[in-house]
Simulated assay, not measured.
Amino acid sequence: MKIAIPKERRPYETRAAASPDSVKKFIALGVQITVEAGTGDGAFISDDAYASMGATIAVDYQSAVKDADVVLKVRRPLTSGEGDVDELTALPKGSILVGIMLPHKNIADIKLYAEAGITVFSMDLMPRITRAQTLDVLSSQSNLAGYRAVIDGAACYAGAFPMMMTAAGTIAPARVFVMGAGVAGLQAIATARRMGAIVSAIDVRPVTREQVESLGATFV
């Protein structure tokens, strides 16, 4: 079996569909892995890191996916007119495509996949149950989104998050309000608290009060 891991080409996408550690596990199972050159650049993973785990480095997208049985991607493939490379057309007929496809937002793509003879597994539709926790891409990415939201907010904020006591006086801590206490919201609360802010949050579900307060925030 051949698994292809191509480079992500959508704007601002820096993630890679597999890490060198993942490649090592696949290789141990006897799977042939081909990684497109530059796949890990956005995540600061070199081609040598993949090669050291046994992966073959392909010079371009077409070479990477040629004869692939399974193609791993973070986001849905580019179609005709979306970019310099028509990623969907290059996929071998009968291959399996795995990634975050968001089919409800990209309904037209479903027909294109069928016409191309591709079987697609959209990881964002995996049920969020105990048995499928290791396949839950939404929770992991929401965690990062909640963290990054606070970091970006702090960068744009004109003041400092923690209380600061100096010889010139005392600066009060920032007040952060988080709307929603799901996976992203709880991570945002935790991050803002670690940075020294006074945090309050709200959610339409009263049962989240305990989770919010356990992180040191005030439930509104």
Results as ranks from 00 to 15, higher is better:
M179R: 11
G185T: 06
G185C: 10
G196K: 06
R205G: 05
V199S: 03
I171V: 15
G182F: 11
A172K: 15
A184Q: 08
Q187A: 12
A190H: 02
G169P: 06
A197D: 00
V212Y: 05
V204P: 03
V178L: 06
S200F: 03
G185D: 08
M179E: 12
E210I: 10
V183G: 07
M195F: 10
A197C: 05
A172V: 04
A172L: 08
M195P: 02
A192W: 00
S200K: 12
A174G: 05
I198H: 08
V207C: 13
A197K: 00
G196A: 04
V204C: 11
A188W: 03
V207R: 13
A184K: 07
V199P: 04
V176K: 00
R175N: 15
F177W: 07
A201Y: 02
E210N: 12
Q211D: 11
Q187W: 02
Q187H: 12
T208M: 11
G196S: 07
M179L: 14
A197Q: 01
V199C: 06
I202P: 02
A181G: 11
M195Y: 05
R205E: 05
P206R: 03
V183N: 10
R175E: 12
A172S: 13
A197M: 03
L186P: 04
M195N: 02
V183K: 11
L186M: 13
I171A: 11
D203L: 05
A181I: 08
A190K: 12
A201G: 06
Q187K: 10
A172H: 07
A197S: 06
V183R: 10
R175V: 12
A188N: 05
I198D: 09
I202T: 15
R194Y: 06
T170H: 12
P173M: 08
P173Q: 09
F177P: 01
G196N: 05
G196C: 05
R193P: 08
R205H: 09
A181P: 13
P206W: 00
R194L: 13
R209Q: 15
D203F: 03
T170V: 14
R209D: 02
P173A: 09
R205I: 09
G196I: 07
R194T: 13
Q211F: 07
S200Y: 01
V207L: 14
T170E: 10
R209T: 08
M179F: 10
R175F: 05
V183C: 06
A190P: 03
P173S: 09
M179W: 09
T170Y: 09
M179I: 13
G185A: 11
R175D: 07
T191K: 00
R194G: 14
V176I: 07
G185R: 05
V178C: 05
